[in-house]
């Protein structure tokens, strides 16, 4: 029990401390491509520390849900992170059907942030929240199809055994599909541009316009955990990390997450944002990629 508690705290700290590194790496890559020096890799840590110290400016219309929403969203994301197995170390909580809980925890976090966005009655935030929950319909279809293909391939209904083997023939399709989902869920280019400040054209940034101080810190930290979460999920879904010895597995996980992060940075540097009416098209493409991965897994399983 005590060992379990220790492992829980260790893993929690690992997640909480490492997550804000990723946006820093992405920004470094973008700066490098553009030939700039860019902000330090640890910039988000400084930002979070500063925001945590600040006082809050709250809309006169906001209810306590303005604070509770981000807190619930953050807890949900942490819960989803703890359900994700880390290679051969496995998950802290592993049970049959845990993948469904993981997907629905992501949905709960969406509920929390979208709720908090609607608190202020601002049309910008309403717009951002509307986009967030609408595109989520398509990403949810893609994610659940991807998970289904993993389940069919491994014949299992628990994340630890589901993510252990590699997906086989559908691996490229699944990787592409999940990468698009990662970009959409984390509001990166080509779905959203974390750099712009033109509220009309954004999703995530538009939702958090009125947040400040500690709640904003919680939201930003949650977003970075979500990025790390999807990067790990993608790596583990594609590579057979679960069957390796601990050291190489850890190496591969780190390399995989770094590769995904650098990939996000490169996409962000090289692509422009899509027009909003094209977004559903790209998300549908992601869904179809995952669907073909599922069909390949199905063929493989039947043979």
């Amino acid at each position: 029990m005590i060992a379990g508690g220790g492992a829980l705290i260790f893993r929690l700290v690992l997640w909480l401390m490492l997550a804000p590194l990723l946006p820093g790496i992405i920004n470094k890559v973008k700066a490098w491509v553009a030939g700039r020096r860019g902000p330090p890799v640890l910039q988000l840590y400084y930002d979070l520390a500063r925001l945590w110290q600040k006082s809050v400016v709250m809309s006169a219309l906001a209810s306590p849900g303005f604070i509770i929403g981000p807190a619930v969203a953050w807890v949900a994301l942490t819960g989803a992170a703890l359900l994700l197995p880390l290679g051969p170390a496995g998950a802290l909580f592993s049970f049959r059907g845990d993948f469904l809980l993981m997907i629905y925890l992501l949905a709960l976090s969406r509920f929390g942030t979208a709720w908090a966005a609607l608190e202020t009655g601002s049309a910008f935030e309403g717009m951002g929240a509307a986009r967030e929950v609408s595109y989520a319909v398509l990403t949810e279809a893609a994610v659940i199809t991807a998970i289904l293909s993993l389940s069919v391939h491994s014949g299992s209904t628990s994340l630890a055994t589901m993510l252990a083997p590699s997906v086989g023939a559908g691996v490229v399709l699944l990787a592409a599909g999940l990468f698009i989902v990662l970009l959409a869920e984390n509001c990166r280019v080509p779905f959203d541009d974390p750099n712009t400040h033109l509220e009309l054209t954004m999703v995530h940034e538009a939702m958090v316009l009125d947040h400040s101080g500690p709640p904003l810190a919680v939201i930003l930290h949650g977003a970075s955990m979500k990025l790390l979460f999807f990067a790990l999920l993608l790596t583990e879904a594609v590579l057979p990390v679960g069957n390796l010895a601990p050291m190489p597995a850890a190496g591969i996980l780190v390399a995989g997450v770094l590769a995904v992060t650098v990939g996000v940075g490169l996409v962000e540097s090289l692509l422009a944002r899509l027009a909003f009416r094209r977004v559903p098209l790209l998300l549908t493409t992601a869904f179809i990629l995952c669907l073909f991965a599922l069909l390949l897994a199905w063929k493989g399983g039947a043979a």
Binding site: W52, Q53, K54, S55, V56, V57, M58, S59, A60, L61, P64, I67, I68, P70, A71, V72, T120, G121, S122, F124, L209, D210, G213, P214, P215, V218
Partner: peptide, 19 residues
């Protein structure tokens, strides 16, 4: 939620019109 609430209470809240 309670922790965040307390933190905000400590740091002070200003009410303003929505941006």
């Amino acid at each position: 939620a309670a922790t965040l609430w307390r933190r905000i209470r400590q740091r002070g809240v200003t009410r303003a019109v929505t941006w």
